[in-house]
Design a protein around this nucleic acid. Structure first.
Lengths: 200, 200, 200, 200
DNA sequence: GATGAATGAGCGTTCATTCAT
DNA sequence: AATGAATGAACGCTCATTCAT
């Protein structure tokens, strides 16, 4: 049946993308082969390429998945709280927690950035998701402004800056966790952001 | 070219590293060859490898050079001003200005980050320089604290966070300059940082 | 060619090793490439490396095959006769006959010896097979001693010496067949060996 | 002065050939470069090639030197004794002694044999010297025949066989000295040869 | 005489992709 | 659907040789 096959295909694709994530997390973006993915997924090289036409296809799917997971994690954490202040804190802690629980996310993200110069598809995905991520902050900041809890900041611009800060703070820590205590630096971020948003 | 000529050798090395920079800026880290560098430098493949034993050697030199230029630019800008507040502003604007004048710096930096998972040498250089860069902020913040202009913040932790914010804000903008107005976001950064440092 | 086909794989490997033999016999060990082997085998470079991971792997297989063929030839010749004396003669004539029929065997063997200084695997194979070859003499000499046809010689030591003599006599002749009449020198060898073994 | 220069040139050439010997003895024939020789000789690459036009030239000279040293050693040892029997023994022990004192001689000799297939110059030198070496035996055997100490053997043929035996016995031992006790096998050779030469 | 910078051809190896089965 | 044999282009690196100084 067509439906059943589509389901099967979808399952296979998820399986392959997951295998790709595991392989890249271990070997880095530039040192893995399709055969590595096939082995990890318990398939053959031909089997992998049956579901994804090229290596790039697999990677594009992987990139989207990673960004989506981060974004979803962030959003769910924010939804748990009511006050804008608590939401902001929850999101910031979310970025830090991902770094601690899934450092490979940030490492793979860095791997993809290296492709941006020469790969338009990856650049577009990166832009789209970076906007989605910073939009989570923007929404909360706008909410705080409406409730007169936050000052009249440019929510869009500052949301970009905060997102950039958190991603790179987390990323640098995954590169070398000895460089600083990420919980500590995370708390500094919260303080700085809140001090700015709540100033008279 | 007979007799060992250290000056000439140094010139050649600079020429090759510069060529590597130009090539990577154009083609990205993962799509260039030694031959590309040789062509760009007006040398033969063998000629390039006469000065650098391996491809990695060239890249290590390039990475160090890029980071050094950024750090030097930042430091010089800070030195122009006396007050800690003006110094902070100058450094932040420095990161933004580099993005505008030499966007390839940040793109190549991202390319190198993708190597960190699998290359210890690159990881170590990245850590060393990230610390140097954030140290520029730390020094100024400590000065502000001494002069009782800034509050009792943890200068080290917040310096890391600010550095991460600026590098990634700049980097994302070089990936896609349509995403935001970098001058605008830069000013937001200044405001947020100053609001935190000068709060009572 | 889908499903793993062990038979086909074995056939391919033999085909490649055979091609390597032909190429080395023509061009010598130090002047041939994997591409030469591929061309000779009617495959592409990648095809050859699909069956043998490295060039060295091919050569190791070839070396083992050559030694095995020589040893097998020698042993079969010896088995045709009953008396130790006839067996000794048959083995010696065997070495000579191989030189005449397959001079490339000895030339390729010499090529491998040149690798011994720097390649432990080749050294070990050489030692193992040299012992196997001389053991053929030893067995017959021991038999002759048991039957009181031969004197009380040290069968092991003299077997090594005889083997060395025959291999090098054959090898030198393959280097330059004008140097001597190998049948003639072979007969001298038989006489000398028999004179020693049968002396009172 | 011309004379002085010729002397200087000769000295340089000896120095380079000696360096080549040391390098090959260490790294094997197929893994050394002209630069290795230059370093060993305390010269530059260009300096080496100033005295020998090509790499092959150096090797040819080295090969001749090695063979000449072996031959000279053998001859001198034979000259110490009067009786043919003692002379034969002295020569055989000579081959063994070289293996023990200068195993690299035999290893380098094997390296050269690997070139014979494709290099006529090396083949010719090998033939010439192999004949010289076996001629030392032939002379002594003829002397023994004249003095009616040895039987009516074919001195030429048996000299080839004995030489082949000794070179290869020595060579195999330098490949792997654990394979046998070379003094012991050497004595077996002496016994076998003498038994043949002195039989009625 | 001597240096070493520069060349460029060549090789082993990797790997994405194709395709017969 | 799935396999893996086979291809072939590409790359990093080596090294003999040339030659300006």
């Amino acid at each position: 049946m067509a439906k059943k096959n589509l389901e099967r295909e979808e399952r296979r694709k998820i399986q392959i993308v997951q295998a790709a994530y595991e392989v890249i997390a271990t070997k880095g973006y530039n040192n893995f082969t399709i055969e590595d993915i096939a082995n990890q997924a318990g398939l053959s090289k031909g089997g992998v390429l049956h579901y994804f036409k090229t290596k790039e296809d697999i990677l594009i799917h992987l990139l989207e998945q990673i960004y989506m997971i981060i974004e979803k994690t962030i959003r769910k954490r924010a939804e748990k709280y009511q006050s804008p202040e608590r939401k902001i804190k929850a999101i910031i802690i979310g970025y830090v927690t991902i770094a601690k629980k899934q450092p490979a996310f940030y490492r793979v993200m860095a791997d993809f950035w290296a492709q941006i110069t020469i790969n338009e598809r990856i650049r577009d995905i990166n832009t789209k998701i970076f906007e989605k991520m910073s939009n989570e902050f923007k929404k909360v900041i706008d909410m705080g402004k409406e409730q007169a809890l936050f000052g009249k900041v440019d929510s869009s611009g500052i949301a970009y800056a905060i997102t950039a800060m958190l991603i790179n703070t987390a990323m640098q820590w995954t590169f070398n966790s000895a460089i600083y205590n990420i919980d500590h630096v995370g708390r500094q971020c919260i303080r700085m952001v809140m001090s700015y948003l709540t100033r008279p």
